[in-house]
Amino acid sequence: MQALAYNTQLFFVALIFLLVSLLISTFKILREYERGVIFMLGRFYRVKGPGLIIVIPLVQQMVRVDLRTVVMDVPTQDVISRDNVSVQVNAVIYFRVIDAQKAIINVEDFLQATSQLAQTTLRSVLGQHELDEMLANRDMLNTDIQSILDSRTDGWGIKVSNVEIKHVDLNETMVRAIARQAEAERIRRAKVIHASGEMEASAKLVEAAQNLKKSPNAILLRYLQTLTEIAGEKNSTILFPLPMDLLKGVLNRVSDQEETPAKKTED
């Protein structure tokens, strides 16, 4: 009798423990950013949450889905641009689940699927552009990749909000070539600017010469001003041009004096 009573007590304890375990497993708590996809006997039933929900043990199963934005690094990809330049590019994508039912039912692992799709899309889009466009128009490329990913993951219940290309790595040969190209471009701009300055200066000099031509004394004043500027530098030797107009009178007088004795001798 004692053994029977002991077994009966043990049975009731085990039964109570089982009932408590089932009761505990029946109630689930989902956070604000979580949703529970409920399957009843293997078929989709409904999406529940957040808060306290009831899941019938052995009849219903729940799969948790996080609705927060996921930041995913896209591994470095070897890309050949349209102008046949090999580069290594990596990026980061921001996405979140907006439909928990599609994210669980329509794809096996939406995180892995999104990662693989991002890698292939990155190579495909960048391969259609030249190297200069990759370096200068990153915003346009980010928008193109984001729109393609967003449209292809719509059936998975995923919204791709942003894509950012982080690094475009070039080999040393290409870096040197780009540096030479940039240097040549800067030299070209410097020559163009210098030529433009010479053209503007020549136009001003022509205008100044025309003004000086109207007043002969102005040329003499400008000449004296130049001498004053040179003398102010305290140079031991001063070289300055001598206008031939100032020497015409002296040369004419010398030639007249040479001609006068010659005429006297003939007489």
Rank of each mutant, 00 (worst) to 15 (best):
L4N: 01
L221H: 14
N7D: 01
T260L: 05
M140N: 08
V97K: 00
V97I: 11
M62T: 15
E200G: 09
P241T: 11
Y6Q: 02
E198K: 05
D83P: 14
G157I: 13
R186T: 15
V107H: 06
D150N: 05
G232D: 04
N171L: 01
G197E: 15
L10S: 02
S124C: 04
V70T: 09
I193W: 15
L52F: 14
M1F: 07
D73H: 06
D78V: 14
N142E: 06
I53Q: 04
N235H: 13
Q112L: 11
A182S: 09
L212D: 05
N142F: 07
D169M: 03
Q128D: 15
T76Q: 05
R31S: 07
A203S: 13
T143I: 10
V70K: 07
E164L: 07
V87Q: 05
R31T: 03
P216G: 04
Q88M: 03
P261Y: 15
D83T: 14
E164G: 12
M244D: 13
N7K: 10
S202T: 11
I165G: 02
R35S: 07
V79S: 00
L251A: 12
E32R: 10
K248G: 13
R152L: 09
R46T: 14
Y223N: 05
V74F: 03
E200I: 12
L4V: 04
Q112C: 06
L126S: 06
I219W: 03
K28E: 13
E198Y: 13
V97C: 01
G249H: 14
L15P: 04
K48N: 14
E266H: 14
Y223I: 04
E34W: 10
A103S: 11
P57F: 04
Y33H: 10
F44K: 01
D154F: 15
Q181A: 13
S81R: 02
L251Y: 14
A3I: 11
V92P: 12
I16K: 01
E32P: 00
A184P: 05
E133K: 04
G42P: 11
A118H: 09
I54M: 07
N142K: 03
F12L: 02
S21I: 12
E207W: 00
T26H: 10
L212C: 05
L239Y: 14
S151T: 12
V163M: 00
F12T: 04
I80E: 01
D99V: 12
I219F: 00
L67I: 09
D169Y: 13
L23Q: 07
D154P: 00
E133A: 07
D66L: 07
I238L: 04
I219G: 01
L220Y: 12
P75G: 02
L246G: 08
D150F: 02
N7Y: 08
V71D: 03
I56R: 06
A201Q: 09
